[in-house]
Design a binder for these strands. Structure first.
Lengths: 216, 216
DNA sequence: GTCTATAAGACGATAGAC
DNA sequence: GTCTATCGTCTTATAGAC
């Protein structure tokens, strides 16, 4: 089940997927207002009217793309093992988030754009889903602090540090590239970011690295 | 001197300023593509053609807005006292950045939008200016690390933590509000963010609070 | 399901009276 | 400087043949 309550592409609709992928690229590059159905059609190599056959309107198409993006997020970040130690959970979370950023930069940028736009195009249902997960993690962090298993810190601010920093890196072709004077971020760049972020977050929490993920 | 080499509104052009302010609000809300000159005109309470009298094109108008935003940034964040201790410089930087976010949320959001869009509408000159300041701070941090005045950490990642987190908060009317279930962020919210962020950054650097700014 | 052609309207920009 | 009226273009969406 996806966020919309339907299976993602019950298989057998290649044309639809083709258009969906093209739309993702278009919306990533130009945002909702800037996106052009003609370009989506060209990229998907179908006539423009064909896009409207599968998706009634531009808005419907964007909904479909956003829904996929949110599903991706929730699926990957869902499980939190409350029994595990904080350092492990936080490190796993960070590495997972950086990995998502690396694997799906387009989805990540659309997500960020939508956030900056105040979720103007996101349904109430999807909004609730994204919020629920964050609150869950925050509650866990509060428990750990109460149990003196980590230094006191505002849970939401800590989550935002992780979220904002990885999000910030999602934008290949932006200030990050501009500062590093590179054209694309490599696998190594992302590993270094993950390592660095883990180090920083653990220091914030006064935790020692577990060292099960990588050798530093 | 501003980023464009001219004084900001040499005073005496109320109409122009009126339009500029309206444009700022419009671009903040809808982004460059989504912005509508008609709405800007309505908000500024002038006929649409009047907008075109003061600004030749939509692009020109956006340039003017962006230029003001970048000037604001550079003016407030420019001075770094290399002789001062790291904790003081970092704390001052954080509090200044949070304050800017509080005072100019519109400017901040436009800045963030432009960043996410890959600075598509920012002139080369302005790009260079924003980059220069970041590199300057990074160099200072590297010096401090070499002099063992703080724990080793990737300077850019540290800056991004600060930048991304405060930026993330700039979006009143977004996920932050959604999570906190509030309609606007108060002065106190921003103070708490600044305190929290200072604590986190100083822990990352292994530094003690100086306590000259606020009593924690 | 696929595609061409086109409708219907919105938009940025301008001409030209005052 | 200000404003009305309008031009030309672009864009979403649809009608209707195949």
């Amino acid at each position: 089940m996806t966020a919309t309550g339907r299976k993602i592409t019950p298989l057998g609709n290649r044309r639809r997927d083709q258009i969906l992928r093209a739309a993702e690229a278009e919306f990533e590059k130009y945002g909702y207002e800037g996106a052009r159905i003609q370009r989506i059609a060209d990229l998907a190599e179908v006539p423009k009217a064909n896009v409207h056959y599968y998706f009634a309107s531009k808005s419907t198409l964007y909904d479909a793309v956003l829904s996929n993006v949110v599903d991706l997020w929730n699926a990957a970040l869902a499980p939190i093992d409350a029994a595990a130690d904080p350092a492990t959970v936080l490190e796993d979370y960070i590495r997972m988030k950086v990995e998502l950023t690396r694997l799906y930069p387009a989805a990540t940028r659309i997500f960020a754009q939508e956030m900056l736009g105040g979720w103007q195009h996101l349904s109430e249902h999807l909004k609730r889903e994204t919020r629920a997960w964050t609150e869950h993690l925050a509650t866990e962090i509060e428990n750990w602090i109460r149990q003196k298993r980590m230094l006191p810190v505002d849970p939401f601010h800590l989550i935002f540090v992780i979220w904002a920093t990885t999000q910030h890196y999602a934008e290949s072709g932006t200030q990050v590239k501009s500062i590093y004077r590179k054209n694309s971020l490599t696998r190594q760049d992302h590993d270094r970011l993950a390592d660095s972020l883990v180090t920083m977050v653990l220091r914030i929490c006064g935790l020692e690295p577990v060292g099960h993920g990588r050798n530093t």
